[in-house]
């Protein structure tokens, strides 16, 4: 059901360019807030032992993004931008 709703929304926004999500890796502190707050599971936290925080967010399902901006608004580290 949720998947259908998302698909519809995506279809509706076809006229507009598809959302683009930019992660500024060096700002991300791996807090996971964005991953949790995203209603369409666009983001994932990827373990990264080379970073002091041990993880970095990655965009795994950009096509599901509805440009709701919740991730950008609530990223405390200025690390996510949704275009």
């Amino acid at each position: 059901m949720a998947e259908t709703a998302t698909a519809e929304k995506v279809a509706k926004k076809k006229e507009k360019p598809a959302p683009r999500i930019e992660v500024i890796d060096e700002f991300c502190k791996g807090c996971n807030i964005c991953v949790d707050i995203c209603p369409t599971n666009v983001l994932e936290m990827k373990p990264d032992p080379t970073r002091w925080v041990g993880a970095v967010v990655v965009v795994t399902r950009p096509e599901a993004c509805t440009r709701c901006m919740l991730c950008e608004i609530h990223c405390p580290d200025f690390a996510i931008k949704v275009y």
């Binding site: 700002f27 502190k29 807090c31 925080v53 990223c75 580290d77 200025f78």
Partner: peptide, 14 residues
């Protein structure tokens, strides 16, 4: 001056 000094998950940035 970025990235800022606040801890992971700190709400100040928001």
């Amino acid at each position: 001056k970025m990235p800022h000094m606040w801890c992971p998950g700190c709400g100040i940035g928001i």
